[in-house]
């Protein structure tokens, strides 16, 4: 459990605002921080990591005080047991993958640990390559591997996949989720991608102007309607075609196209490219073994 109760002034393009957060993050949560640029998401992540210092307040993780302004406690990043994955990977370009991972170790000569993580992330074959020669997806996999080297309890992910294309993104989302579950992590993600948030997280803090304006599950937050449907997915509208007196709406969900019928009134406010929720009751879908 992470108890966060902190404030810090933020200097943004729109002037100075105060980042003020008083929340608890449960162990095992996969939390997303969602909000406009400059709202304080990355700063909050960096505060948890110890890369920035709050002006006031406390951070307590599983009963251990990481930060207490009054008691002058401020654990340095390396004592906080967090893994951090950045959008730009932040690897040493002229070091090999193995050297990048070894660099993250507190003690040298833990080559067994390096092998274990290389295997887990399925990047053994890259181990001697220099990281500057890797593709974006490979780099991010190495960055995740490096974040895991110190056995963190908390994984902080600052838009880790936003530079990757669709298919690679999906693959790495699955890997992140697997890592989160396998290591029993508490993960905090900054993301703007609603489908990614749905796939990965169980809880979302919406941050605006430094304050958490909503704390909800992804479906509560984005669907914005508590439908009693049982089958819910988020997709993008690809096309809307009139067909007899109905309209056929093609929706891209993950990488599959789903066709749904609608009537004129349903599509009144829908445009190609819009993100929509598809829902159906538990009684409609038919199961057949493949």
């Amino acid at each position: 459990m992470i108890h966060l109760n902190i404030t810090k002034p933020l200097h943004t393009a729109d002037g100075t605002i105060e980042l003020s957060v008083n929340k608890e993050i449960e162990s095992g949560d996969f939390l997303t921080l969602f909000g406009k640029s400059g709202s304080g998401k990355t700063t909050l992540l960096r505060i948890i990591a110890g890369l920035e210092t709050p002006q006031s307040g406390t951070i307590v993780v599983d009963g251990v005080v990481w930060f207490d302004n009054e008691k002058k406690i401020n654990l340095p990043p390396q004592k906080r047991n967090v893994g951090f994955v950045f959008q730009d990977y932040a690897l040493f370009p002229n070091m090999s993958v193995r050297q990048n991972l070894e660099f993250a170790l507190k003690e040298t000569k833990e080559s067994k640990k390096v092998d274990e993580i290389l295997e887990l992330m399925e990047i053994q074959n890259l181990s001697s390559m220099k990281s500057e020669h890797l593709s974006g997806g490979q780099k991010q996999r190495v960055a995740v591997a490096r974040a895991l080297m110190t056995n963190p309890k908390i994984l902080l992910l600052d838009e880790p996949l936003s530079a990757l294309d669709g298919a690679m993104r999906l693959k790495l989302q699955e890997e992140l989720l697997a890592v989160h579950q396998r290591f029993g992590l508490t993960s905090v993600l900054v993301s703007h991608d609603i489908s990614e948030i749905f796939r990965l997280s169980n809880r979302v803090f919406q941050i605006s102007l430094g304050a958490i304006s909503r704390d909800a599950s992804p479906s509560e937050l984005f669907a914005n309607q508590n439908l009693s449907g049982k089958f819910k997915v988020i997709g993008d509208i690809l096309s809307i075609q009139k067909n007899d007196i109905l309209y056929v709406v093609e929706v891209l969900v993950h990488n599959e196209i789903i066709k749904v019928t609608a009537v004129k009134n349903d599509i009144k406010n829908l445009n190609i490219g819009d993100k929509i929720m598809l829902s159906s009751k538990a009684f409609n879908p038919i199961l057949s073994k493949v």
């Binding site: 508590n226 439908l227 009751k281 009684f283």
Partner: peptide, 25 residues
């Protein structure tokens, strides 16, 4: 009548105002 399959966290109770939605088809 509406037949639902709900988990433990169902959010429906007597007295609540609801919209009933059903497709034309």
């Amino acid at each position: 009548n509406s037949l639902l399959l709900e988990g433990d966290k169902n959010h429906f109770e007597v007295g609540m105002n609801v919209h009933l939605l059903f497709k034309e088809t």
